[in-house]
Amino acid sequence: MIPDEQAGILVVDDRPENLLALRELLEPLHQDVTCVTSGDDALRCLLNQEFAVILLDVQMPGMDGFETARRIKQREKSRYIPIVFLTAYSFDSHQALQGYSAGAVDYLVRPLDLGIVRSKVAVFVDLYLERKRAERLAAQLSKLDVRRRQALELNDTIVQGLAVAKYAFELGEHDQARAAIGETLEAAKRVLGDLLGDDRVDPGDLVREGPARVPTGHAPPIPGHEARRGR
């Protein structure tokens, strides 16, 4: 697994021994586990790091789990991160979880069943990684799209220029044809420069300098010229 594909898991509990236990429990998932001991620390963490899921102890001194969750959901950046509450046995889950509309919210009752904790977290991690993968793909696609545009522009430039040159050749106007090819190369160079993001392309890289070789017989046909274009 490459670092790019690791998900962050935030664990919030005021008791260090619980944190230690949870960290060990999540270890086999090979993700990036961050442990903090208060709601305040959790909120701070969320400011500069992205997480796939938050495990949140409900009973904490100071800001309790529900208040922490409320604040997390208030922030645009973190409101869609799934939260799993860790609660006591007597907890009325249905009532407590009402009112959370944004993002997934779930709960686990202590004492924790280790297998269930791990598989629940794994589901959120998978979801997160899948979303990240889709985002990366989309970014690559839009990069491809830009390339495609530039390729089309290059294509148009060359086709247009060669059409002029080809007509001139066919009509026996070699000077005209030479000029058209020169202009086409200049234009192609400009577009290629854009494509490569710098100005390193020299027309000489495309066609060796030297006496222009002008066909004396008929010019080679341009694809699409003859009638066999039927689809």
Binding site: V159, Q160, A168, L171, Q176, I222, P223, H225
Partner: peptide, 19 residues
């Protein structure tokens, strides 16, 4: 005159006009 779709207008007419 059969030909491919021209990317710009009247390239062919311009070429023949010279002759």
């Amino acid at each position: 005159q059969h030909r491919g779709v021209e990317p710009a207008d009247a390239v062919l007419a311009d070429a023949l006009a010279r002759k």
